[in-house]
Design a protein around this nucleic acid. Structure first.
Lengths: 224, 224
DNA sequence: GAAAGAACTGAACACCTGTTCAAGCAAGAA
DNA sequence: TTCTTGCTTGAACAGGTGTTCAGTTCTTTC
């Protein structure tokens, strides 16, 4: 007698897995990583604590996958925005402002993913997450350099610095809380995008134009 | 019969307190914040675990004071370097490269002070620490703006972004390990300083000159 | 030198969560 | 239906570390 998972069961299992991940994500979005504890997450997902361990070997794995998921979403959004831009400099501007908007619209989640203290070791997935975004931005800078729009430079270093600047300015502990005021929020995104573009060598005048181009299309400067 | 602390005792108590703090600092410099645990620190300071609590109400207080101490040192170094510079733009360049060098020469400590996960809440002192440095850099940017060297901007935001850029690029998880090669280390400091100056609006050509001016005087690009 | 107060010691305590596992339950095969 | 397999449960467990405190040692006062 061979036991076989029927379609329905497979689907249910997958749904549960997603539910657990979603519960973790909700918890992180509301209360940061410290709120991602097995018991509360299990409750949120309508599951017993032990069940979580049938889907994720450990809390570290759960959080790692959460980080990977959020990171994937962000990377996709950045790519989409950059690919839609008319030229390499615009693409860079679009990429940067997309990161800024994403990070701003889900600050707690972003902070949790990036840097919030967690009791388990998720360094690896955090590094992977950063590496993806940094790689994307670096390749955009590279394209602009090749197009002759920017001076030659260590693009990896530049991209890393840019990411750090965005994060610290927007979700770091010194970030002023601009949520609730869309106008201020937009100004902030513009300001950091401008800083970023100038940092890699875009001329000031040109940068201002690019920033406006890049920020305006971003429809929802608030919300998920 | 009134008990009075004699001079000798007062001195010994102060010495112990310093010893505990120093032990904590050593531990942090060697193994990051996770190595700052009461028992090991006590051993290092030649003291029993319980004694630590006669000097610091809690681990959080110990670490907070450690952060404050390191932060004070760094701020002083930045001020010194900037004040010695010939003009506002040079001062800014000097401030930025000083932060870069400091952070690079004690990466584990810097990472611990800034962002490493800690099991107790030291958010307040971390914020204070950042605020001091950011305030200093912001005021240097401000001076350069007033001198007409830079475009008007949100200096607080810019300074915060700069700090984030330095940290992420130099001690973040993606930072390439350049220690051991002084030449590369100097290049890195130059590169991030250049990025920072351009970000706030220094023209590229001028920035290059400022960077060289600012980085060259920094004697020890390695060591504590 | 003796009494009293302060400082120090370090083993025991407390607490918090991630993790486990024996028992119960649901779902597939015959 | 009945047997087997695997999923689910949730209370108990485990481990590590900050914190306490009764007992000891050192300092001061008279």
């Amino acid at each position: 007698m061979v036991y076989r998972r029927t379609h329905q069961v497979v689907k249910r299992l997958a749904a549960r897995r997603s539910a657990i991940l979603a519960a973790a994500r909700e918890a992180a979005a509301e209360g940061g990583m410290s709120a991602v504890q097995i018991a509360p997450v299990a409750v949120r997902a309508n599951v017993a604590a032990g069940t979580v361990y049938r889907y994720f070997p450990s809390k570290a794995d759960l959080i790692s996958e959460l980080i990977a998921e959020v990171s994937r979403d962000e990377l996709a959004a950045v790519r989409r925005a950059a690919d839609a831009a008319p030229g390499p400099s615009s693409a860079l501007a679009a990429a940067v402002s997309t990161v800024a908007v994403h990070v701003l619209s889900q600050r707690k989640l972003a902070w949790g993913i990036l840097a919030e203290p967690v009791d388990v070791d998720v360094t690896a997935s955090r590094i992977a997450s950063r590496r993806e975004i940094v790689g994307e931005i670096a390749s955009r800078i590279d394209a602009a350099v090749r197009a002759g729009h920017l001076p030659a430079q260590d693009t990896q270093l530049a991209a890393t610095a840019l990411l750090g600047a965005l994060h610290e300015a927007l979700v770091g502990p010194l970030a002023t809380d601009n949520l609730g005021d869309p106008a201020k929020l937009r100004d902030t995104v513009q300001a950091v995008t401008l800083l970023a573009l100038r940092a890699v060598g875009v001329m000031d005048a040109r940068a201002r134009g690019l920033v406006v181009q890049a920020v305006l299309p971003v429809k929802s400067l608030v919300g998920a």
